[in-house]
Design a protein around this nucleic acid. Sequence first.
DNA 1: GCCAACGTTGGC
DNA 2: GCCAACGTTGGC
Length: 156
Amino acid sequence: MRSKREKRYWLFKSEPSSYSIDDLLNDKKTVWTGVRNFQARNHMREMSTGDQILFYHSSCKEPGVYGTATIVTTSYTDPSQFDAKGEYFERRATQENPIWSAVDIAFLAKLDKPVLLSSIRLNNKLRNMKILEKGSRLSITSILKEDFLEVVDMVS
DNA sequence: GCCAACGTTGGC
DNA sequence: GCCAACGTTGGC
């Protein structure tokens, strides 16, 4: 069912050593669990099917955008918060009152070459991207459609 | 490995 | 409700 709402655009950070664009390419689809930041969680709750994602690699040798993905579910309760043995366990969460959310994302494309943070920084059109803000740590940020298109266009 | 910046926690 | 202390993030 197509939503009437305008498509939104997001940037997802991931450390490639834990989950990379190649992992997403292999999996085709994955559940984005383990987000433990309220701002990022609230962003997930605003997402809907068809929203577009820039897939960003952080904490690595060459941080930057490596691919694209799309949202394939609306947000739902992140099951990892109930796993007492897991690293994402949340003691305050109950089935009746869960705290954290997850979404499913699907692979769209791997960029022919990454658009590195260093070149994003040099592109004046992208100066408003939150990824450029000093001390920016938010793992999911909202971006403009123009930013999404511009980054993808920088590959060629 | 360093360290600045940030979000969260918990004592008061 | 404040805020210091702490742990984490992430670029360099």
